[in-house]
């Protein structure tokens, strides 16, 4: 049972990553490599602030802001300086590697016995069950700490999902979605689609960094290497989510992405349980995304937006 709860929690945390990528990859149609750097950025900033005794919520907020800044820079490299999207992302991601090392001062910061965003929930839970370290749920003994993290992450994920859904349905959000599909049209409708790209990347990487922040707090450490391959995980999650619920409305899409991320983590947990070598995990994921991108049939319809190759600066 703790395996399942762990997978769910991990899924919820990474669903913020997936939602961010939903905005950059799917909505604004920008192949944003910054993700691998900004998730680590979120983790390292939170780690440093939490270790120094700042509120974990404040630390998460800082992470969000820093991630946004990174995304914004990627967007500006592309829109202002007409650098190819992938290259813009690579430049920022590469720079972030050094920046993350600078922020942390070393390659790894452990977060043991520190306050996290779930500490509050844990306290409440403990009060409710009278100090027991485990709670019986449907016959399963679940550690109170794990449950607290799960609940906190659920609340955060649901909160963000609702905000995001509402945002995408506003006038601004509608224009943002259109900007990715048909830049010429939105420009003709008075939307500066460069601004839209920059804004979307800022929002997307903010969410990615927030995801990194929660990840560090949940795992108990921040590591300079932790971002590697995250982008592909996010992609895999989005693809699964779309396969689950389709893309018929904003609410469904967002729900799908969250469910997809959780399902993906569950699949990984099961695979690992069955003896998959953790070192092979990223290769398997990459293969899965590859299969989804090139396989015919229902995969094809889902993945066609990713096979467009390089796109150059719009305008």
């Amino acid at each position: 049972m703790s395996l399942v709860i762990g997978a769910f929690t991990m899924g919820l945390i990474l669903s913020l990553l997936s939602l961010g990528m939903l905005i950059s990859f799917r909505m604004i149609k920008f192949t944003d490599i910054t993700v691998d750097g900004s998730i680590t950025l979120g983790a390292s900033i939170s780690a440093v602030f939490i270790v120094q005794g700042y509120s974990p919520w404040l630390a998460a907020l800082f992470s969000f802001a820093a991630g946004s800044l990174a995304g914004m820079i990627t967007g500006l490299l592309h829109t202002r300086f007409k650098i190819q999207e992938i290259l813009s992302g690579i430049l920022v991601m590469t720079a972030l590697y050094s920046i993350n090392l600078r922020i942390m001062g070393r390659s790894n910061i452990p977060l043991l016995d520190v306050k996290t965003v779930s500490t509050g929930t844990e306290n409440i839970l403990e009060k409710m069950v009278g100090g027991a370290s485990r709670i019986n749920i449907l016959g399963w003994q679940v550690p109170t700490g794990d449950l607290a993290v799960f609940i906190t992450c659920s609340i955060i994920a649901i909160f963000i999902a609702i905000i995001l859904s509402c945002f995408l349905l506003t006038h601004y959000g509608t224009a943002l979605r259109a900007a990715g599909q048909n830049p010429q049209m939105v420009r003709a409708q008075g939307v500066n689609n460069n601004t839209m790209v920059v804004f979307s990347l800022a929002l997307a990487n903010g969410l990615v960094a927030l995801s990194g922040s929660l990840l560090a707090q949940y795992q108990g450490f921040a590591d300079v290497q932790m971002g590697i391959g995250m982008m592909v995980w996010g992609l895999a999650s989005i693809i699964i989510g779309e396969a689950l619920v389709g893309r018929s409305s904003i609410g469904l899409t967002i729900t799908g992405v969250i469910l997809g991320t959780i399902l993906f983590r569950l699949l990984i947990a099961i695979a690992l349980r069955w003896g998959l070598n953790p070192n092979d995990l990223k290769m398997v994921t990459a293969f899965f995304v590859f299969a989804a991108l090139v396989a015919p049939g229902w995969f094809r319809t889902l993945s066609k937006k990713f096979t467009g190759g390089l796109r150059y600066a719009k305008n």
Partner: peptide, 15 residues
């Protein structure tokens, strides 16, 4: 909705 807001500020109200 997008066309209707041409030339106006795009607000954060539901469209």
């Amino acid at each position: 909705v997008i066309a209707m807001k041409r030339g106006q500020r795009r607000s954060l109200h539901i469209a």
